Amino acid sequence: MLRTPQVNELTAAVQALREWQHDDAPMQLHPGDIGWAWRLGAEATAAAVRTWSRDGRILAVGFLDQPDLLRFTMAPDAHHDEDLAQQLAEDVKDPSRGVLPAGKVYIESPKHTRFQEQMFSDGWQSDEPWTPLRRDLSQPVEDPEAEVEVIGPGQAHEYAEVIRASFDRSTFTEERWHNMASGPYEDARSLVAYAESQPVAAVTVWSAGPGKPGLLEPMGVHRDHRGRGFGKAITIAAAKTLQQLGSSTALVCTPSSNEGAVATYKAAGFQPMPEVFDQRRD
């Protein structure tokens, strides 16, 4: 059964995502993706989430990252569930179901599932490649060689300043940090790197619980301070923070075309995994 949850029902969707994270899983929707979306407010986040359930159990969770982009994942034991794959395909393809509109749209889902096979059979195409990267946190993480702080509400304006200056179309504000922190943020941390007391880089990390992969989302370096190693430093600090939170690995994913970002993550000890592709209907 397809459902758009109410705000008070989002906890169940986030908890399902937590339970489905494990180190052998393909790159997939993470509870941190929902946490980052919370910057726009609880109501907007709920409106962008879709769940599919059977017999009272959530089997798939989707998130409309953009009106034309659905990111979703499913319970590990449902990856090859024929009935679920058929239901998902029907709901995604039919604009009247309220998942994706007509026209050109995109889907991000785990590789090698019955659903993904079904969509290729229905004529959907692979889109541009993304590179997932992973750092094993079973070994000690080195110091970042920069001044990095875990920030709280009093420094939210500094975090917001860096994020806005890191992404060309960013509309991030101090208010949005507070929105984010009011969501499923109990196992998350926001970090800011400083140089001569100026905020120069920022990241938020999201734990899915002890022994599970954690996520970096987002990570940015102020455009006026690039090329000085701050991206590497704050990425190392992010990995160290996730290790302290009990995460087994640190994950991040970036467009393969963003060679600078890939190089930064690799310099910080992250290993690239096989590329992943969204599916596209033209």
Rank of each mutant, 00 (worst) to 15 (best):
M1L: 08
N8M: 12
Q15R: 13
Q21N: 12
D23E: 13
D23H: 13
P26W: 10
Q28D: 03
P31R: 08
G32E: 08
I34H: 10
A37S: 15
R39K: 15
V49Q: 05
R50L: 03
R50A: 03
W52I: 04
G62S: 08
F63E: 09
Q66R: 15
P67A: 01
R71V: 13
M74C: 07
A78Y: 02
E82I: 09
A85R: 00
D91I: 00
S96K: 10
S96T: 14
L100F: 09
P101R: 10
E108F: 11
E108D: 12
G123P: 02
W124P: 04
E128D: 15
L133N: 05
R134E: 10
L137I: 10
L137E: 09
P140N: 04
P144M: 08
E145C: 11
A146R: 08
G152N: 09
Q155T: 10
Q155A: 13
Q155F: 08
H157R: 15
E158I: 11
Y159T: 04
Y159E: 02
V162N: 04
I163H: 03
S182W: 11
P184K: 01
Y185D: 15
L191G: 03
V192R: 10
Y194A: 12
P199G: 06
A202M: 09
A202R: 06
T204I: 15
P210Y: 07
G214Q: 12
E217M: 12
P218C: 07
R223Y: 07
A233M: 12
I236V: 15
A238G: 14
A239P: 05
G246S: 02
S247K: 02
S248A: 11
A250H: 08
S257E: 08
N258P: 01
Q271G: 12
P272F: 06
M273G: 06
P274L: 00
E275Q: 08
F277N: 11
R281V: 02
